[in-house]
Amino acid sequence: MSCDYKALANKGVQGLHPYQAGKPTSELERELGITNIVKLASNENPLGVSTKVKKVLAGELDELSRYPDSNGYYLKSALAEQMMVKPEQVTLGNGSNDILELLARTFVNDSHEVIFSQHAFVVYPIVTQAIGATPVAVSAKNWGHDLDAMADAITERTKLIFIANPNNPTGTFLTSKALRHFLEQVPEHVIVVLDEAYYEYVAKDERAPSVQWLSHFPNLVVSRTFSKAYGLAGLRIGYAVTSEEIAGLINRVRQPFNCNSLSLAAAEAVLDDTDYLTASIEINRVGMKQLTEAFNAMGLEYIPSHGNFVTVDVQTNGAEVYDALLQEGVIVRPIGGYGLPNHLRVSIGLESENQRFIDALKKVLQLP
């Protein structure tokens, strides 16, 4: 081969490394021949799929030869009613990751800067670099966003700011007061993306009224997902709530039919399943208590989390502990790539899954 295809790629893409997802159970089975695997790596909902979703999906199968509703009319209408906004303010995405990339492609070019926090979601620097923009990673404060430092980092080249609340992978949380104060400092030509993928796991009295702020901050974008608390990670569907003007611009670059028929129907069904959401939140609360109490008993420090995961300091090379846990049939997430080489991110599972991880971790770390 004489052609250097890497040299043909955009400069930002040349230096990128592919996103590393959590290891699938099927891959570990192939590699090590292990069965009865526990996966606590990808912040998935351990309850499985809502029964309402299963019933709805069965009725959709005969229509799979048809294209989906590209506008997602019924789901957008349901979301708009729940959040008391106009359907024209809602944009649907193939997971909330799709929304994040759409925003970057809509508003940012290679002359701009994009601000995000150290230890924040890896997709932020990936989409920034892919379009050739300049990433500005602001040093974290107590494992989370330092909003004052992020405000100070704004320049005339800043076009987009990503804020994850709660943050992934550290689980840290910003109060409504702190967020509002930050938004008041941001020039209106700078788009602020408030990534609330784990919004439902936050206690109701602590949640920021972010959607209500849209009338005061037209540069604000709120993104959420059905992948976590709603248990639809495999169907990939998320959404953004914005001003009508921003939504209209995003839709100019959004791919047609970016949300498939099954994901649209499933999301509409689970949005109406309050019992499932309540159960998801409760099992997360109980599981979080189970894991953190175990970490306390083992003398391991962890970062207090508002998501459906907890990040723990294993006091040694996290990648090596991760590999050793694989041998025990337990998959978690090493996060050295986030600048946390001695930490593991552990998703909250069912009680038995959590205990399996706890027992395996004790064995690997040679703890009593």
Rank of each mutant, 00 (worst) to 15 (best):
D272C: 07
R254I: 05
E200V: 06
A240Y: 00
L232R: 07
V202G: 07
N251D: 15
V253K: 07
V211E: 09
L232Q: 06
V221G: 10
W213G: 11
N260G: 15
I250D: 02
V286F: 00
V222T: 11
V286N: 09
G238Y: 01
T311H: 03
T311N: 07
N284Q: 14
R236M: 12
T242F: 06
G307L: 07
F217V: 01
G307S: 15
K228T: 13
F295R: 06
A266L: 07
I283S: 08
T292Y: 01
A229S: 14
N317L: 12
R236I: 03
E301R: 12
S215Y: 00
R236E: 14
V241T: 11
L232E: 08
N308V: 13
V312A: 10
A265R: 08
R236Y: 09
L214C: 03
R224D: 10
M288T: 08
G248D: 12
F217M: 02
G234Q: 04
A203V: 03
G287F: 03
R236V: 04
Q255I: 08
Y302T: 09
Q255D: 13
T278P: 00
V314A: 05
D273R: 04
C259P: 03
I246R: 01
G238P: 08
K204G: 09
S261Y: 07
V310L: 10
N308C: 14
A229N: 06
A203F: 05
G307K: 02
A319V: 08
D273W: 04
Y239V: 08
S227L: 11
A247T: 11
W213P: 10
N258E: 08
L300Q: 08
E293M: 04
T242Q: 06
S280A: 14
V314Q: 04
F257E: 06
S223T: 15
G234K: 01
N317D: 15
F226P: 08
D272P: 02
N251R: 15
